[in-house]
């Protein structure tokens, strides 16, 4: 885990929809340093997903800059595909490729994009499957797996590309309650190994336990940030207090 160098710097980030009618992001400034686990919380519609999706340019920002690894990726001349290879993303609804086996899901990108040999790609995939306890399902199709298994596969599929940061958008929200734990466990282990992570979640327990920093968003703005202890222990912003009051009961 290297010290304090900034991996992602976001400056004045704006994202408008419908020609400015909806300001999903309204001037966000923040940094994500290597090895950090940044947890993003906030009420529904506050712009958390949009923020995360802007980081790898799945949404094109209306304004502001995003600097990843020293490169301004909002510059149109930048080859975004190259940078996306270094930013793994995990979605709420898994988005595994249903026409491929688990192993094929995991080896497609390394083989086609990193030009790895099949053996090399499969070896790495199997090692990762082993770690999440799903090595015996490598030949299965996504439809044959439970939600929790699918999400663990989605995580290791992203890891096959050796990303420098992992982005999670509510990775446990679509899961049955009894499957949330197994996915959070994988994420915790990833955090322990020093992976840089940005996680949008409603799991306050996870934020408290694993987060190195928590960001609170509301109405497209970053209203407060700090360590979990500070943010949950002594919230300053009234809207954050209100929000915590609702989610923590």
């Amino acid at each position: 885990m290297s010290g304090n160098d900034v991996l992602i710097r976001v400056e004045g980030l704006q994202k408008w929809f419908k020609g400015g009618e909806i300001k999903a992001l309204d001037g966000i400034d923040c940094e994500i340093r290597r090895g950090e686990v940044v947890v993003v919380i906030g009420p529904s519609g506050s712009g958390k997903s949009t923020f995360l999706r802007c980081l790898n340019l799945l949404e094109h920002p209306t304004g502001g800059t995003i600097t990843f690894d020293g490169v301004d990726i909002t510059d149109p001349r930048v080859d975004i595909n190259r940078h996306r290879q270094k930013m793994g993303m995990v979605f709420q609804h898994f988005n595994l490729f249903p026409h491929m086996t688990i192993l094929e899901n995991m080896t497609l990108a390394p083989m086609k994009l990193l030009k790895k040999s099949r053996e090399e790609a499969e070896q790495k995939a199997m090692a990762l499957l082993e770690r999440v306890g799903l090595a015996d399902r490598s030949g299965a199709y996504p439809s044959q797996l439970s939600g929790g298994q699918k999400q663990r596969i989605a995580i290791v599929r992203a890891l096959c590309m050796d990303p420098e940061v992992m982005l999670f958008d509510e990775p446990t929200s679509a899961l049955d309650p009894e499957m949330v734990g197994e996915v959070l466990e994988v994420m915790k282990e990833l955090a322990r190994e020093g992976m840089t992570m940005a996680v949008v979640t409603h799991e306050m327990g996870f934020a408290r336990e694993v987060g190195t920093r928590v960001l609170f968003m509301d109405e497209g703005k970053l209203l407060e940030q700090g360590t979990p202890a500070a943010l949950f222990g002594s919230p300053q912003n009234p809207r954050l207090k209100d929000f915590l009051g609702k989610v923590l009961q």
């Binding site: 996306r84 290879q85 979605f91 988005n95 490729f97 497609l108 086609k112 994009l113 599929r157």
Partner: peptide, 21 residues
């Protein structure tokens, strides 16, 4: 599902590769 397209792009595939694979 548009999520399929996004999953492809987020892995680093370009538009044509995402379509193709």
């Amino acid at each position: 599902d548009p999520g399929q397209f996004e999953a492809g792009r987020s892995l680093g595939f370009n538009y044509v590769q995402t379509m193709r694979y």
